[in-house]
C-alpha cells in the first residue's frame, strides 16, 4: 500500500506513512459509519471528482448526494442542501464524518494527481461496528451548518466527531504543517512558507473557497 518505489520523484516517507494511516482508518469502522460505508463514501467522492459515473454503493441516497457534491464541487454545497440531507435521514454527526472521509481521500488522491501518478486503489473494508463516540465537550449549531464544540473556527470544524477531527489534524500536519509550525512564517520543507501559501491560495481560488 502506497509503495512509491516507481514514483516519478522520491516521496517523503512521513507523507507515505500519513497516507497509509488515512487508508487504514478509511477501511475501519468509524464513529457513525461502518468500514464498508466509509469506503463506499470514498468511492462516490472519487468518481464525482473525476466526473465519472457514480458506482453502485450501499449507502442512503442523501449520503450519496453529499459525497458526490463535496467530491466534485464543494463550493456548491449550501445550507439548504445540508438541511435537506438532514431531513432525509443524514444526521449531522454522520454528515460531519462523511465530510472527513471525503476530504481526506481527496487529499491523498490530489497528491497522486499532482505528480501524475495513478490513484491508490481504495482499501478493502474491515468488519466491525462504529464506535458512536460522543465529543467530550457539548456541541451546538451556531453560525455554521453543523454542530461544533465552540464558535465556528477552522481547528474545530469537525469537532462533533472527534476521531475525524484528530485524523484531519494528523494528515494536515504532514501534507501542510502542524498548528505549531503555522506560527512560524519562515517554516520550510521543500518549499518555503511563502511558496506553500501561494500554492494554498491558488488552490482555494480555483475552488472558490474563501479559506
Amino acid at each position: 500500500m502506497f509503495d512509491f518505489a516507481a514514483a516519478p520523484l522520491p516521496i517523503r516517507e512521513d507523507l507515505a506513512d500519513a497516507f497509509r494511516h488515512v487508508w487504514k482508518r478509511l477501511a475501519s469502522p468509524g464513529t457513525w459509519w461502518a468500514g464498508a460505508e466509509r469506503v463506499a463514501i470514498a468511492a462516490v467522492a472519487r468518481a464525482a471528482y473525476a466526473s465519472a459515473d457514480i458506482p453502485p454503493v450501499d449507502l442512503p441516497e442523501p449520503a450519496i448526494e453529499a459525497a458526490a457534491l463535496l467530491g466534485q464541487r464543494p463550493s456548491a454545497v449550501t445550507r439548504s442542501h445540508v438541511a435537506d440531507w438532514g431531513e432525509r435521514g443524514l444526521d449531522p454527526y454522520r454528515y460531519v464524518e462523511l465530510i472527513g472521509v471525503v476530504s481526506q481521500v481527496t487529499t491523498v488522491d490530489t497528491f497522486h494527481r499532482g505528480l501524475a501518478m495513478n490513484l491508490e486503489p481504495l482499501p478493502v473494508p474491515s468488519a466491525g461496528e462504529p464506535s458512536h463516540e460522543e465529543p467530550a465537550s457539548p456541541v451546538s449549531v451556531t453560525k455554521a451548518w453543523v454542530p461544533m464544540i465552540g464558535p465556528p473556527n477552522i481547528p474545530i470544524t469537525l469537532s462533533a466527531v472527534p476521531a475525524e477531527m484528530a485524523a484531519l489534524e494528523h494528515l494536515s500536519g504532514f501534507a501542510y504543517m502542524t498548528y505549531e509550525e503555522m506560527q512560524n512564517p519562515a517554516f520550510q520543507r521543500g518549499l518555503s512558507r511563502a511558496q506553500m501559501e501561494l500554492v494554498a491560495s491558488r488552490t482555494s481560488a480555483i475552488n472558490e473557497c474563501f479559506y
Partner: peptide, 9 residues
C-alpha cells in the same frame, strides 16, 4: 491536496 481537503471541510 491539503487545501482540497480544507476547502471541502
Amino acid at each position: 491536496g491539503n487545501f482540497e481537503m480544507m476547502n471541502r471541510i
